[in-house]
Design a protein around this nucleic acid. Structure first.
Lengths: 129, 129
DNA sequence: CTAATTGCAAATCATTTGCACCAAT
DNA sequence: ATTGGTGCAAATGATTTGCAATTAG
């Protein structure tokens, strides 16, 4: 496994991203900064980061995926605003435990989960009045 | 809103489907039965059913969507087997309540949610030994 | 009648892949 | 040197769309 400049750039971006990032937007950002990394490499490297356990992929029901660094974060789930697309993270230990119980009940061995609540954030609710 | 034969056929299929269905597979099934409905109409009609609140769309992180009739079912979430792709439904009132609490906490107005646990079903765990 | 609906084929959009060229070990 | 990595452009796969032909109300 080689540590190429392209991989370093993409890893950096993922690590420093405060919010979820999309593969294509990442490519575009780099492109606009004059950094030459191809779309293919962006996709390939993001996949790699996931395989290495450094990032996670979410789909949020949209047609494109979101990537997020796993580094320095605890597992969390998401509230997704249908109006401004803002993503709020939440953690709930009780829900995690209930999930374990459910899996037990079905003899299911959980690997990961994906839990999103879609709706309207405080700000968008107000501005809709 | 017209009630065309195409719409009747697709609605029927969705209502009688015991499991989740995929748009393309539905098209293929109909095609093999000699029923002439175009792919476009399948997609258009499924969208319509969702807009009418008769069906729901799930994405499960795969590259294609799953559709499911809402009729005669209670809200439920899913366990998705990564090996055989089987989908097990589950309902947990406690989790639903905890979700409401979380939304309250963030001033978030929930519209719907999507909650999946990915892993290995009992059968696949055994066959992997 | 006539506006809504369909089928077709072409268009999109996100993502993946084949392959010749290039670079890290 | 060798093998893995990159860029490009073409391929893919799911879904959407433009438009002319069709049909339900």
């Amino acid at each position: 496994m080689r540590f190429t400049p392209e991989r370093e750039i993409i890893l950096d971006e993922v690590l420093k991203a405060k919010t979820h990032l999309e593969a294509d937007s990442l490519f575009l950002t780099l492109y606009q900064r004059g950094i030459k990394v191809s779309r293919a490499t962006v996709y390939r490297t993001l996949d790699l980061l996931i395989k290495c356990g450094l990032a996670e992929k979410n789909s949020f029901g949209q047609n494109h995926a979101h990537y997020e660094s796993v580094f320095g974060t605890i597992h969390h789930d998401h509230l997704v605003c249908l109006s401004c697309e803002k993503v709020i993270e939440f953690i709930d230990e009780e829900i995690e435990e209930l999930q374990d119980k459910i899996c037990e009940k079905f003899g299911f061995k959980a690997v990961k989960h994906s839990h999103q609540i879609f709706g309207y954030c405080e700000k968008c609710q107000k501005s809709q009045n």
